[in-house]
């Protein structure tokens, strides 16, 4: 999209990582990194963050506000939801599913998009034309409609959801990668590899892929936020992740029904989504700024 001019050479790439380390000292970036680390920890070791069972219901103590202490003396820091489940515990355990779904979907779309983007950009000709048509088709097909339609067929399994969400957004990757490859294809180091008789697959894997990796990272961070939101919207439309598995998006869409009674039920998962996306986007922005050689020049 906007990164069409970004062609870091191998030496620039090393500079990127060094630059990244330097950026961490800035408070905004440091917070973003801390948030991401915490999220990852949450999804791997949820037990460290809460001692509550996220699916334990108590209908009698439903829709309670923050700092609610139930009869057995358990403190619900963020209160309870419409089934009396602990909201904080559901946020903690929801991190795993939310991240699995969104990262999974990004991986699917990245794999598909990178593959087709590389082929289209490198091979060109009819292959490229076909891939471009495929991109047009996919972009013209609204994601939400595609997923609702397909979920009726496949059932609402986690795997199907991940695959469909991924399927719906591969064109972003494909477009960016394709245009990157188009500019890389004729650069000296690729020419050199070709002249010494390297095979096509070797050229693509050894010389092209490493150079588009950072662009992929940037696109991936943005797609990640989109996926979190898509998952929420699908829950709202009744085709999200199966209950009782908690996801942040599912929590918002269930909680919005109680906005007039207990607005905290949907607010907290909403805040967590916002913080997460803010953190991911901050890192994505930093990455992009660092990757742009001209920007790097003006800063130093």
């Amino acid at each position: 999209m906007t990164q069409t001019n970004t062609v870091p050479s191998p030496s620039q790439r090393r500079g990127v990582w060094r630059g990244m380390l330097k950026q961490i000292r800035r408070p905004g970036v440091a917070i973003a990194v801390a948030v991401v680390i915490m999220l990852v920890a949450m999804s791997i070791f949820p037990g460290l963050f809460t001692s509550q069972d996220p699916n334990l219901q108590s209908i009698l103590s439903r829709l309670k506000g923050p700092m609610f202490e139930d009869r057995s003396g358990v403190l619900h820091v963020l209160g309870t939801d419409q089934l009396g489940r602990d909201i904080w515990a559901r946020i903690v355990y929801g991190a795993r599913t939310t991240l699995i779904v969104s990262i999974g979907a990004v991986l699917v779309s990245a794999a598909l998009g990178i593959f087709l983007g590389l082929i289209g950009g490198y091979v060109g000709g009819v292959t490229d034309a076909v891939i471009l048509r495929l991109i047009d088709m996919q972009l013209a097909f609204p994601v939400i409609l595609l997923v609702i339609g397909a979920v009726a067929v496949t059932g609402q399994s986690l795997a199907a959801l991940i695959f469909l969400m991924g399927l719906a957004s591969w064109p972003t990757f494909a477009r960016v990668i394709r245009s990157e490859v188009l500019t890389l294809r004729d650069r000296e180091f690729v020419e050199a590899a070709r002249s010494i008789g390297a095979t096509q697959s070797r050229i693509i894997l050894r010389h092209i892929v490493p150079n588009v990796l950072s662009v992929i990272m940037v696109v991936a961070t943005f797609e990640l936020s989109t996926m979190i939101l898509i998952e929420a919207t699908l829950s709202f439309l009744g085709v999200g992740v199966q209950p009782p598995t908690p996801t942040w998006g599912g929590m918002i869409s269930e909680g919005q029904r109680y906005l007039s009674q207990a607005w905290t039920v949907s607010l907290f998962p909403g805040l967590v989504i916002s913080i997460t996306i803010l953190a991911i986007n901050t890192l994505g922005d930093e990455l992009r700024d660092l990757l742009d050689p001209r920007l790097a020049r003006t800063e130093n």
């Binding site: 919207t233 709202f236 918002i252 869409s253 909403g270 989504i273």
Partner: peptide, 25 residues
């Protein structure tokens, strides 16, 4: 700049249906 960027991130981090319902209320 920071302010505007946070505003943008906020806009990108709230699901449409939630914006809609909250704004109705």
């Amino acid at each position: 700049d920071t302010g505007i960027r946070y505003l943008a991130a906020l806009g990108q981090s709230v699901p449409t249906f939630y914006w809609g319902i909250v704004s109705i209320i």
